[in-house]
Simulated scan of single mutants.
Amino acid sequence: MRLTFADKTVLVTGAAQGIGRAIAEAFKAAGATLVLTDIDAEGLAATADAIGAEAIAADIGDRARAHAMVEAVHARFGGPDIVVHAAGGTRGQAGRPLTEIDEASWRAIFAANVDAAFWIAQAAAPHMRAAGAGRFVAIASGAGLRPSLTGIQAYAAAKHALVGLVKQLSWELAPDGITVNAVAPGFVRSNPTTERQWEAMGPDGQASLLKSIHTHRLGTAEDIAAAVLFFASEQAGWISGQILSVDGGRS
């Protein structure tokens, strides 16, 4: 199966590095008109320059900024036909005891992982409805289906909330031809945060994790991108409201 997106405008959030960047590279190779966004303006510009994509830096955890960014995409390129929400993550946080979590730490993770997904979907949906079709793919996590290996309470809670949001958005949008799905990656060494987590496991923890994965290897950002492109394709037109674990069989 060869997937092509030559006639599609694709918006990828969280594209400055890691999984988001790999998704952007895969869509670019498949011929998409590609627009990238991220809160990290410097990293975003580097990615966009490297792969030949347009870039709009924005904090999409803010409703007004998320809507303005989507409207800018629509005005310049049309669409978006496909939105991939890869923004989120742990926002540089590490696991801490329950009693030490402050409000700002809690809200920062929810803003990036859940609020941003909702605002982007809210802004893009009218354009997709007008076109009679669309794709929204979110990057969830194994932490949205079970306790998180990071030990970060807000991250596990936010990813569980994102899974619920995907299912609810599917119920609302799929009748208009807009499918909504999520990919839930296993542990992928794709950015400085996951590298620190990997090192913190130590040799014994690393060996234990690999043993728990059916394929006995870690995944790559490219593994996740491949699943995203399938969900975004015409061939996946009757798949909606699904959460696909891409984790080597660990789940």
Rank of each mutant, 00 (worst) to 15 (best):
R129M: 12
Q93W: 13
V114D: 01
V83H: 02
R65D: 10
A125S: 07
R63D: 14
M69K: 08
A130E: 08
A125C: 04
A58R: 07
V70C: 09
A87L: 02
A117T: 03
P126C: 09
T90G: 06
E100V: 03
D62A: 13
V114E: 00
M69D: 03
S105Q: 12
P97H: 09
A111M: 04
R76E: 15
A111K: 13
A133S: 13
G134R: 02
I56T: 04
D59K: 13
W119E: 03
G88W: 01
M69T: 09
F110L: 14
D115M: 11
E103I: 12
G92H: 06
V137S: 00
G132W: 14
E71W: 07
I82F: 04
A50Q: 06
V84E: 05
R76I: 11
D49R: 03
A58C: 15
V84L: 05
A86C: 15
I109A: 01
E71K: 15
W119M: 04
I109K: 03
I56H: 06
I101Q: 12
I82S: 02
R107D: 15
Q93G: 09
D102I: 06
I82H: 01
D59W: 09
P97Q: 11
A131N: 07
I109F: 00
A50C: 09
F118T: 13
E100L: 11
V83R: 01
D49Y: 02
V137K: 00
A72H: 04
D62V: 10
F136R: 01
R107F: 13
H74M: 03
H85P: 02
T90P: 06
P80I: 05
A130V: 13
